[in-house]
Design a protein around this nucleic acid. Structure first.
Lengths: 359, 359
DNA sequence: CTGAAAGCGCTAACAC
DNA sequence: GTGTTAGCGCTTTCAG
């Protein structure tokens, strides 16, 4: 009779009538098994039993937990704690090596702090993320966003969660913290390297993506070239894929006079550029030098290997996670600007005599 | 007085004494705002109000929710429901294009079913996953594991969660369901293509990774070559990275007599092979043909583009997610074996006359 | 058609 | 040193 009045507990039908639960064991089951209270179980397993629970009891609890194969229910813990120890990492694409490495760096730091990272590859690339909070079905403590366009961040700002931005306009004020790369310096190094080699007619294979990081690359290149009067740079825009890069590079290399060096916004574009050169019967680096950016694994898969700007992707991810952790703890996060480094490989050389200035 | 006896609710200090909550709005806040009960809010927002709540009331509730910027607390929902609508996807590495695409496919299907996917890149590569359930801090409904070694799956089996295995030994019985690729057929196509072109001395650049997928490749290659009496294949093992592939391919190409074709277990290895060939002064495909496997984006980044076996990675991920969903709903999941296809590109050609059989 | 109430599994304040 | 208890926010009976 009484049972007809009592609301049925969810999953009740799945449970046997006796006291032992059939499903996943709960802390209650552990408590019963160890003949202690649930609170004691929580204390012991939470590692805060020192001076509150006798070592003997603690050991009993741990044994019981092990025997039952107990795993705490994270949903319940999150609900109780109001925090989930989970961060969302929003990236434009996963197929791009760089972001995979950012993720690795962030995960590593997260793990050290018993945090989790869930990835949200924004379906719209660098564009507005549709609904990261709904789709990433996890309950979140904070968000880290990498290389996103400004309007994409607007959507992220709506979440009401602490936001750390990576490789994004440092003047934006949406974020609680930022981690940046010295993109401009990287481009200066690349351009300086080519100019130093004697190149004067450069072409810029520019990524047709409207984000801070690419605007920065364009600006730095223009500025660096402008310092040498005889030097010039033309720009060809390309989508961030090999095929389009091939087309853009072909346009650049069939211009008259032909540039002696191609400065590419990304290793992917550089790969397209090498392909284009080869198809036009030009040798890299003898006839045309090519530089990339990012130092993806692709850079050393090519022959010759790419001279490119190495970005410390893992470090970026790690610093991002550290900044988020700091923010979450109410500490001020520093806003590092990480240095980048030109890696000289086989795809660049001095221009050949016939192409040299003055000829 | 009473308040001293009552335990402090967590976060209570953060709340103003008045009725309005300061933190994230809860369904209670929405109910209050709409002057209805919490139950009504749940019904309306859960989309199951048809015939139970008046349209007028429903609209009021939705408006209130929108005004307050209400987002349901997923931890609470998970706790109540006992399910989280979240799957764990375990992959050996994220930097490998193939897995990024598997993830994309799985996420896409997940999203359609209002599911989330959290990625766990097994730190040990294809080896035993350390503790995916702890590190992926989300509460999970099921696990999808791709291309893992058998012992790695043992650890996953411990979770007590439904497990779907992708690209793994179909005879293993740990999984609730499997999704496989017709790897053997792919390798048969690749080898058949080379044999048909007239190649008789093949070398196999084999991935030194002990998983089903690579054992299958080796077996199928051996079998196919065995069908042609004059044909032979030597094997060089290589780690799954460019540098080691370069070394292995160099060994293969400096053997006497030199093989006329390199069959590689992975596009990454094929890239290393091309690099090795070029460094030895050999032209691809004139002097040596190279085939890859997977059809990574790398395959078309190279010049010449790789002839390779295209794996429908997205489809694998999607089928895996569908299988998990089916299992979760108690339906029988089918165990598809997805077809693969050889993509002929520029890295293969008939052996040159001097290398041809009989010369 | 709407509201009241219970309880998912966990943690932490407090009582003993 | 250990147990009792309340309650996180949500969904879902059941009563009205």
């Amino acid at each position: 009779m009484a049972s007809t009045r009592r609301p049925r507990r969810p999953g009740e039908a799945d449970r046997p009538p006796n006291g032992t639960s059939a499903g996943r064991p709960t802390s209650r089951d552990v408590a019963r098994q160890a003949s202690v209270s649930q609170a004691t179980v929580s204390l012991v397993l939470g590692g805060k039993w020192q001076g509150r629970v006798s070592p003997r009891t603690a050991e009993t609890v741990r044994t019981a937990a092990r025997e039952l194969g107990y795993r705490p229910n994270l949903a319940a813990r999150s609900l109780r704690l109001g925090r989930t120890r989970t961060a969302l990492l929003v990236v434009p694409a996963l197929t791009h090596d760089y972001f995979a490495r950012v993720h690795a760096g962030a995960s590593h730091v997260a793990e050290e702090h018993d945090f989790g990272v869930v990835l949200y590859p924004s379906p719209a690339g660098t564009g507005p993320a549709v609904d990261p909070f709904g789709s990433a079905r996890a309950a979140l403590d904070g968000v880290i966003a990498s290389s996103m366009a400004a309007d994409a961040l607007a959507a992220l700002g709506e979440g009401g969660l602490p936001l750390v931005m990576l490789d994004t306009d440092p003047d934006s004020d949406r974020a609680a913290a930022t981690v940046n790369l010295d993109i401009a310096d990287g481009m200066r190094q690349a351009a300086g390297h080519l100019l130093g080699l004697g190149h004067r007619r450069l072409a810029h294979l520019a990524a047709a993506v409207d984000t801070w990081t690419f605007r920065e690359r364009a600006r730095a290149l223009t500025d660096t070239v402008a310092e040498i009067p005889e030097a010039s740079v033309r720009t060809e825009a390309s989508a961030l894929d090999i095929e389009d890069a091939l087309r853009a590079a072909t346009r650049a290399l069939t211009a008259c006079p032909r540039p002696t060096a191609l400065v590419c916004d990304d290793d992917l574009l550089a790969a397209g550029a090498c392909k284009a050169a080869r198809r036009l019967g030009l040798r890299v680096p003898e006839d045309v030098s090519v530089t990339g950016f990012d130092d993806l694994s692709l850079a050393t898969a090519l022959e010759p290997e790419l001279t490119t700007v190495r970005l410390p992707a893992e470090e970026v991810g790690a610093a991002g996670m550290r900044a988020l952790l700091a923010t979450l703890e109410g500490r001020a996060a520093d806003a590092p600007v990480l240095p980048v480094r030109l890696v000289r490989r086989g795809s660049t050389a001095a221009p050949s005599a016939t192409d040299a200035p003055g000829s």
